[in-house]
Design a protein around this nucleic acid. Sequence first.
RNA 1: GCCCGAGUGGCGGAAUGGCAGACGCAGUGGACUCAAAAUCCACCGCCGGCAACGGCGUGCGAGUUCGACUCUCGCCUCGGGCACCA
Length: 819
Amino acid sequence: MTEPHIPDDGAYHPDRVEAKWQARWSDRRTNEPDLDLAARPFYNLMMFPYPSAEGLHVGNVFAFTGADVYGRFKRLQGYQVFEPIGFDAFGIQSENYALKIGIHPGQLIPKSIANFRRQLSALGGMFDWSRSFSTTDPEYYKWTQWLFLQLLKAGKAYRKKAAVNWCPSCKTVLANEQAEGGICERCGTSVEQRLLEQWFFRITDYAERLLTNLDDKSKMDWSDRTITAQRNWIGRSEGAQIDFPIDGGEVIRVFTTRPDTIFGATFMVLAPEHPLVDRLTTKAERPAVEAYRQATQAKDVITRKVGEKDKTGVFTGGFATNPATGEKIPVWVADYVLMDYGTGAIMAVPGHDERDFAFATKYGLEIRRVVAQADEGSDSPLSEPMIEDGDCRLVNSGHFTELPTGEAFKGIVAWLEEKGAGKGVVNYRLHDWCISRQRYWGPPIPIIYCDGCGPVPVPEKDLPVLLPYIPDFHPDDSGVSPLARHKEWYYAPCPQCGKQGRRETDVSDNFLDSAWYFLRYPNTDFADRAFDRSRIEKWLPVTSYIGGNEHAVLHLLYSRFITMVLNDLGLVGFDEPFRKFRAHGLIIKDGAKMSKTKGNVVTPDEYIGKWGADTLRMYLMFLGPFEEGGDFRDAGINGPRRFLDKVWDLVSQCSRKTLIGDEVHHDVVVKWQQTKKKVTHDLEVLSYNTAIAALMELLNAIRESNCSERSIVKDLVVMLAPFAPHFAEECWEQLGRKTSVFDASWPTWDEALTVTADVEIPIQINGKTRSKVRVPRSATEELVVARALRDPIVVKFVSGKTIVKRVYVPGRLLSLVVA
RNA sequence: GCCCGAGUGGCGGAAUGGCAGACGCAGUGGACUCAAAAUCCACCGCCGGCAACGGCGUGCGAGUUCGACUCUCGCCUCGGGCACCA
């Protein structure tokens, strides 16, 4: 690339400056750290984009810029910063879009990626393009498939026939996370239930570890809201599993968080899919039960899960024995009990559970009080379920009566355990991760089914199992991936016996691609392994990760899980992949989050063209706190641009050695030192808006004092560099420097010079600030009081009254209370 | 319903319990200009006042404190997440 000519009219021309420095960075490999030699490695990661055909919008730009600012700051602090970027290009989103416009994703994606690369480069990110990849590259997904085989080997991948979320529109199975609220995340259609053979990962084996690591600050310095989201998603609850015997020696096993209320369990409810429903149903009730089960199956998930909370159900005719009371209690079937949580069966305690209460009321079942407050009678009627258990005691509960609920919980669990009827258990909301997708656009799962040998993993030496090009990649509602229609690919010899077998036609979940990409970036030069142990040790865990909180429970949880498995396999030496994670805020436009689906996107291209990338970066970082986001409006972007223009003028004055005023003013020096301190601190905590404000204040101070002292201007340029990298490089060169500004060192400050010699002490009288006095910083309380009492305003408020209280905060304020 | 955030000028937003409104945008007045743009200077929370100055003011109501945007309690509103999870 050749550097453009920059006109010598003294004005700031962002387009020329940006083209010049982008060319130079590329030519000089400025952003490509030596991964083996780095002495102070800093892995600065940001969530890689899904390359949509529409290109980046300023919401994405906001996120990438914020992460880039941090990386550039760290580089200036002397770290060798590795800032990779790639493309998360497999998945249903890409495939659906390709289907919509009728272009094969294999053709569409490279174009979208090229456009993304152009846009990302134009932004001036410190990306190491030499280590970029797309998850759709066979050199990448070869290792995604390898990863699957490692999980299989470790016993963490298994196949089972399961009721899964089926989207009738996308014609595919969805992970629970993609079917939240019973609605397909991609297309908004109601999700149905279907039984299919699926591959699962045992993420639930790691539930406890995923949870406990969240508390370990040495491993995880994460945004609190992200930690909270993960904790809620894993959904740990402590309770008990209790067996209720039925005729024939079998038991109905339930999970409950309130074993202390077992004496109030007056009936039981099974999920319609529960395997014991058949056994329990009497001849007389069979037609009704069958009808109910069918009706449930036909109901889509929306009405079942989030629709009316109106309870419905039918009596099976069967009974079970409450192990606490010995009573026979009726067993019902109702769809408010879910097969996929707990055991799919509950003991219903209508007196102390909202749902059971509603159900019992509707069907006339017995409601029994077993918990009461201290001042409540043991048989006072329940007009509504009594849920709270704090400061309550048991009633009507055999020899546990009168025990506080907390004690009763333990006592009853121990008692049941002794009787062999139950035990204390922990239950999680988290489910195993279904990774099978009956789609085309993903990495084929590397398995061959053989009639003799069963499912056989594809040997690692035969990877990748290439995704074949098939013109017709439409999914159909057969529940089988389009790959099954590609016969040359579908039939393959069994790796074990050599007889003809059939390939697994499902591809893996897009989230598997992104669950390990951070491991690949520093290892793209290794063709023979997913990652190199010494590279990994040097660069991981990721030093800083910045991304959207929409991935708080999906991507981030899966990445942690995969890392733990690799750790257990001895392949990596750590079990948490991201040492520091910060969630950025959202860019709001017209009152809504900027997103393609909302149709309120703004592309960066027009702003870069009009104002320059550096101005856009500055504006985005200035418009609000990075971790909270802000409103994007056109008005306001000229502010940062004016600021850069002024700095530009200042730098040209400096470079022409037309120093105005030889004497460095004290105020400016203080401001300068204060600014260095504040900007350093603010950048560290991602408070970019206030850092920029501080730089503006320093500029204003320089201009007001007419003191363009060279060392101050130099520091200003360095501190500006993370935000406006091209601009800062050009200024740096104007100041006579030969190397990149990013090879400069971050300014340090003299703490003693960050404070002024004199201070203004506000004087509060009865809580109101009435005046202020100017005193030396070291002034004693006596001096401040003496000065204050000479102040005419203070005199006015104090005369004729007595000072009853005096509070002096040294260097801060004087507070007087008069009466 | 539950769990997180957040409510501050015309706007975006600043404030370790210590001068509320930094910084910026918009606006107003002025300088420069034939004129406009750009630039520069000044003003810029609300009410009263020529002014000095005074009163009010950080969603609402209490409280703690010499002092509260900040802490506590009780509400209201908005945004986000979870949700028949036993």
